[in-house]
């Protein structure tokens, strides 16, 4: 077939345009804005690296970074473990398994506002079902005020986030699991490998590209967390559940500090970029693409 050399560019045009106009453009503008004092309403003033020095000297900024890392450290393994576990469970050939797959997927497609309402009720200090269970069945006399307590607000959010995200990553794992040829398991069984050996010698290595995808994916989602904070705690109490993207939103649109917010966004971009690059470097050690 004959085609002009430029033809392929037409095919990538929609994607490339989108990337250039809606991704690269804003990133460049944000990078420039990060050197200004800008309240959106009036013209930005150039202030050099003022926003960056302010961020680095701000206690709140470092608290927010710490919160983001804490969230990530619980969220990423939490989602990966739960999703893998669910995927192994629903990978069985049982009657009505599709029903269970649907049920576990449901939280992912439920609107965050609805999820927040239900979980706010579960976590409610005095009338919440969680504290009711803790006091009545576990006889804990003074259960925490989950979302209003500086120690518990972030872990509580993380739990909800894991619950909500796992269903989707389960489907990804499930697709990976079903891509592993059954002949391998049959051969292993004949050779006398038990279930545990089969998992660690066959399933886990062959699933590693999928695991890596899920890992990077949840890592990025962890950094991007916003709606759950917005709907459940508003970042409180006293910034205890504020993570980076929420902090950027707050500064940009609530505190009228677009310059400072974009400086934080640039720092976030650097952090996410560095972690993603590191992960890609590390993947050669454990990700197995060849069958």
């Amino acid at each position: 077939m004959k085609y002009s050399k430029t033809t392929p560019y037409f095919f990538i045009l929609p994607m490339a345009t989108g990337l250039l106009v809606f991704r690269l453009g804003p990133i460049i503008v944000a990078a420039l804005a990060s050197f200004t004092k800008w309240n959106i309403r009036t013209a930005p003033q150039f202030i050099g690296i003022g926003n960056y020095t302010e961020a680095i000297n701000s206690e709140i900024f470092w608290l927010v970074v710490k919160n983001t890392i804490e969230y990530m450290v619980i969220f990423v393994p939490g989602v990966m473990l739960l999703a893998l576990l669910l995927a192994l469970l629903v990978n069985q050939k049982l009657r009505g398994i599709a029903f269970f797959r649907g049920i576990y997927f449901l939280p992912y497609i439920t609107a965050m506002v609805a999820v927040a309402m239900v979980w706010n009720w579960i976590f409610a200090t005095r009338f919440g079902i969680l504290n009711f269970a803790l006091t009545h069945y576990f006889h804990i006399s003074n259960p925490p005020a989950w979302l209003a307590d500086q120690r518990w607000a972030l872990p509580a959010l993380t739990i909800v986030a894991i619950w909500k995200e796992s269903g989707f990553q389960m489907m990804v794992f499930l697709a990976g699991l079903q891509g592993i040829p059954t002949s391998l398991y049959e051969a292993a069984a004949i050779d006398g490998a038990d279930k545990k050996q089969q998992f660690f010698k066959i399933t886990f290595p062959l699933l590693s590209p999928v695991t890596f995808f899920v890992f990077i994916n949840t890592l990025v989602i962890a950094f991007k967390t916003f709606d759950i904070t917005y709907t459940m705690t508003g970042g409180g109490p006293n910034y205890a559940s504020t993570t980076l993207v929420f902090y950027i939103y707050q500064n940009a649109f609530i505190y009228d500090r677009m310059g400072y917010a974009t400086a934080n966004a640039v720092l976030l971009l650097l952090i996410v970029g560095a972690i993603t690059m590191f992960s890609f470097k590390m993947k050669e050690r454990w990700v197995n693409y060849a069958l």
């Binding site: 705690t233 970042g235 409180g236 109490p237 707050q250």
Partner: peptide, 18 residues
């Protein structure tokens, strides 16, 4: 909104709640 704290559980409102 930033120093007084409004709907974000921070600022003076957050401190008074503590």
């Amino acid at each position: 909104g930033e120093w007084r704290g409004y709907a974000d559980g921070a600022g003076l409102e957050g401190k008074l709640n503590s």
